[in-house]
Lab assay of single mutants.
Amino acid sequence: VTLFVASYDYEARTEDDLSFHKGEKFQILNSSEGDWWEARSLTTGETGYIPSNYVAPV
């Protein structure tokens, strides 16, 4: 399981994006799509795309 933590807050801009807060942890589901990764929030359980430059490895 690949875990990352949010370095910043992010507000979703499309329905496919995932909003999150600094400190929130994610399981990365797919990182092969470039700068936007499909992730599941371990806080909310929601799945969506997050900007990879807003998160760091745990």
Score class of each variant (00 low, 15 high):
residue 1 V to K: 11
residue 1 V to H: 13
residue 1 V to R: 11
residue 1 V to N: 12
residue 1 V to S: 12
residue 1 V to F: 14
residue 2 T to S: 10
residue 2 T to L: 14
residue 2 T to V: 13
residue 2 T to M: 13
residue 2 T to W: 12
residue 2 T to G: 11
residue 2 T to R: 12
residue 3 L to R: 05
residue 3 L to C: 12
residue 3 L to E: 08
residue 3 L to K: 04
residue 3 L to H: 09
residue 3 L to I: 15
residue 3 L to S: 05
residue 3 L to M: 10
residue 3 L to N: 05
residue 4 F to A: 08
residue 4 F to W: 15
residue 4 F to P: 00
residue 4 F to E: 00
residue 4 F to R: 03
residue 5 V to T: 07
residue 5 V to E: 09
residue 5 V to F: 06
residue 5 V to Y: 08
residue 5 V to K: 05
residue 6 A to Q: 00
residue 6 A to G: 03
residue 6 A to W: 03
residue 6 A to K: 00
residue 7 S to K: 15
residue 7 S to F: 14
residue 7 S to W: 14
residue 7 S to A: 13
residue 7 S to T: 15
residue 8 Y to G: 07
residue 8 Y to P: 00
residue 8 Y to A: 12
residue 8 Y to S: 09
residue 8 Y to E: 10
residue 8 Y to K: 11
residue 8 Y to Q: 12
residue 8 Y to V: 09
residue 9 D to T: 07
residue 9 D to Y: 05
residue 10 Y to P: 01
residue 10 Y to A: 01
residue 10 Y to H: 05
residue 10 Y to T: 00
residue 10 Y to V: 01
residue 10 Y to K: 01
residue 10 Y to D: 00
residue 11 E to V: 14
residue 11 E to K: 11
residue 11 E to C: 14
residue 11 E to D: 09
residue 11 E to M: 11
residue 12 A to N: 04
residue 12 A to E: 02
residue 12 A to M: 04
residue 12 A to R: 08
residue 12 A to H: 05
residue 12 A to K: 08
residue 13 R to M: 11
residue 13 R to W: 07
residue 13 R to C: 14
residue 13 R to I: 11
residue 13 R to N: 09
residue 13 R to L: 11
residue 13 R to A: 10
residue 13 R to Q: 14
residue 14 T to N: 14
residue 14 T to V: 06
residue 14 T to Y: 15
residue 14 T to F: 15
residue 15 E to Y: 10
residue 15 E to T: 12
residue 15 E to L: 11
residue 15 E to A: 13
residue 15 E to C: 14
residue 15 E to D: 12
residue 15 E to P: 13
residue 16 D to C: 15
residue 16 D to H: 15
residue 16 D to I: 13
residue 16 D to N: 15
residue 16 D to R: 15
residue 16 D to W: 15
residue 17 D to N: 11
residue 17 D to A: 15
residue 17 D to Q: 15
residue 17 D to E: 15
residue 17 D to S: 14
residue 17 D to P: 01
residue 17 D to V: 15
residue 17 D to Y: 14
residue 18 L to E: 00
residue 18 L to V: 05
residue 18 L to Y: 04
residue 18 L to K: 01
residue 18 L to G: 01
residue 18 L to D: 00
residue 19 S to I: 01
residue 19 S to E: 03
residue 19 S to K: 04
residue 19 S to F: 02
residue 19 S to W: 03
residue 19 S to A: 06
residue 19 S to V: 02
residue 20 F to S: 00
residue 20 F to G: 01
residue 20 F to I: 06
residue 20 F to P: 00
residue 20 F to K: 00
residue 21 H to M: 12
residue 21 H to D: 06
residue 21 H to F: 13
residue 21 H to Q: 13
residue 22 K to T: 07
residue 22 K to Q: 08
residue 22 K to I: 09
residue 22 K to A: 11
residue 22 K to H: 05
residue 22 K to L: 06
residue 22 K to V: 09
residue 22 K to W: 05
residue 22 K to R: 10
residue 23 G to D: 05
residue 23 G to A: 03
residue 23 G to Q: 01
residue 23 G to M: 03
residue 23 G to S: 03
residue 24 E to K: 02
residue 24 E to L: 03
residue 24 E to M: 06
residue 24 E to I: 03
residue 24 E to F: 04
residue 25 K to Y: 15
residue 25 K to E: 08
residue 25 K to P: 06
residue 25 K to I: 15
residue 25 K to M: 15
residue 25 K to F: 15
residue 26 F to K: 00
residue 26 F to C: 04
residue 26 F to I: 04
residue 26 F to V: 03
residue 26 F to E: 00
residue 26 F to G: 00
residue 26 F to S: 00
residue 26 F to N: 00
residue 26 F to D: 00
residue 27 Q to N: 06
residue 27 Q to G: 02
residue 27 Q to E: 14
residue 27 Q to P: 00
residue 27 Q to C: 13
residue 28 I to L: 06
residue 28 I to M: 04
residue 28 I to P: 02
residue 28 I to R: 03
residue 28 I to D: 00
residue 28 I to T: 01
residue 28 I to G: 00
residue 29 L to A: 04
residue 29 L to W: 06
residue 29 L to Q: 05
residue 29 L to H: 04
residue 29 L to P: 04
residue 29 L to R: 04
residue 29 L to S: 04
residue 30 N to T: 08
residue 30 N to D: 11
residue 30 N to E: 07
residue 30 N to M: 07
residue 30 N to C: 09
residue 30 N to G: 09
residue 30 N to A: 08
residue 31 S to L: 10
residue 31 S to P: 09
residue 31 S to W: 13
residue 31 S to R: 13
residue 32 S to W: 09
residue 32 S to H: 10
residue 32 S to C: 12
residue 32 S to R: 10
residue 32 S to N: 11
residue 32 S to D: 11
residue 33 E to Y: 11
residue 33 E to K: 14
residue 33 E to D: 15
residue 33 E to C: 15
residue 33 E to P: 10
residue 34 G to Y: 09
residue 34 G to Q: 12
residue 34 G to C: 13
residue 34 G to I: 10
residue 34 G to A: 14
residue 34 G to S: 12
residue 34 G to R: 12
residue 35 D to A: 10
residue 35 D to F: 14
residue 35 D to T: 10
residue 35 D to I: 10
residue 35 D to Q: 10
residue 35 D to H: 10
residue 35 D to K: 09
residue 35 D to W: 10
residue 36 W to N: 05
residue 36 W to S: 06
residue 36 W to Y: 11
residue 36 W to E: 04
residue 36 W to C: 08
residue 36 W to T: 06
residue 36 W to M: 12
residue 37 W to G: 01
residue 37 W to A: 01
residue 37 W to N: 01
residue 37 W to Q: 02
residue 37 W to E: 02
residue 37 W to D: 01
residue 37 W to Y: 07
residue 38 E to A: 08
residue 38 E to H: 14
residue 38 E to Q: 13
residue 38 E to P: 05
residue 38 E to W: 15
residue 38 E to R: 12
residue 38 E to L: 15
residue 38 E to Y: 15
residue 38 E to N: 07
residue 38 E to D: 04
residue 38 E to C: 15
residue 39 A to W: 02
residue 39 A to N: 00
residue 39 A to Q: 00
residue 39 A to K: 00
residue 40 R to F: 09
residue 40 R to P: 00
residue 40 R to S: 04
residue 40 R to C: 08
residue 40 R to Y: 10
residue 40 R to T: 10
residue 40 R to I: 11
residue 40 R to N: 03
residue 41 S to V: 05
residue 41 S to C: 06
residue 41 S to W: 02
residue 41 S to F: 03
residue 41 S to D: 03
residue 41 S to G: 02
residue 41 S to K: 12
residue 42 L to F: 07
residue 42 L to K: 03
residue 42 L to W: 06
residue 42 L to R: 02
residue 42 L to M: 11
residue 42 L to A: 05
residue 42 L to G: 02
residue 43 T to D: 10
residue 43 T to G: 06
residue 43 T to K: 11
residue 43 T to S: 12
residue 44 T to C: 03
residue 44 T to V: 02
residue 44 T to R: 04
residue 44 T to F: 03
residue 44 T to P: 02
residue 44 T to G: 03
residue 44 T to M: 02
residue 45 G to Y: 06
residue 45 G to H: 06
residue 45 G to P: 00
residue 45 G to F: 07
residue 45 G to D: 05
residue 46 E to S: 09
residue 46 E to K: 15
residue 46 E to W: 08
residue 46 E to C: 13
residue 46 E to T: 07
residue 46 E to L: 15
residue 46 E to N: 11
residue 46 E to A: 12
residue 46 E to Q: 14
residue 46 E to H: 11
residue 47 T to P: 01
residue 47 T to H: 07
residue 47 T to A: 07
residue 47 T to Q: 09
residue 48 G to T: 02
residue 48 G to H: 03
residue 48 G to K: 02
residue 48 G to V: 03
residue 49 Y to R: 14
residue 49 Y to V: 07
residue 49 Y to S: 06
residue 50 I to V: 08
residue 50 I to L: 06
residue 50 I to T: 01
residue 50 I to M: 02
residue 50 I to N: 01
residue 50 I to D: 01
residue 51 P to F: 07
residue 51 P to C: 11
residue 51 P to I: 04
residue 51 P to S: 05
residue 51 P to V: 02
residue 51 P to E: 02
residue 51 P to K: 06
residue 51 P to Q: 05
residue 51 P to H: 08
residue 52 S to M: 09
residue 52 S to E: 03
residue 52 S to P: 07
residue 52 S to K: 14
residue 52 S to I: 07
residue 53 N to P: 06
residue 53 N to L: 09
residue 53 N to W: 15
residue 53 N to T: 11
residue 53 N to Q: 12
residue 53 N to R: 13
residue 53 N to S: 14
residue 53 N to A: 14
residue 53 N to E: 10
residue 54 Y to T: 05
residue 54 Y to D: 02
residue 54 Y to R: 08
residue 54 Y to I: 06
residue 54 Y to N: 04
residue 54 Y to H: 08
residue 54 Y to M: 12
residue 54 Y to W: 07
residue 55 V to E: 02
residue 55 V to R: 02
residue 55 V to P: 02
residue 55 V to Q: 03
residue 55 V to N: 02
residue 55 V to L: 12
residue 55 V to K: 03
residue 56 A to V: 15
residue 56 A to I: 14
residue 56 A to S: 13
residue 56 A to T: 14
residue 56 A to H: 14
residue 56 A to N: 10
residue 56 A to Y: 14
residue 57 P to M: 09
residue 57 P to Q: 08
residue 57 P to C: 07
residue 57 P to S: 08
residue 58 V to Y: 12
residue 58 V to L: 13
residue 58 V to S: 08
residue 58 V to A: 09
residue 58 V to H: 08
residue 58 V to M: 12
residue 58 V to G: 06
residue 58 V to N: 06
residue 58 V to C: 12
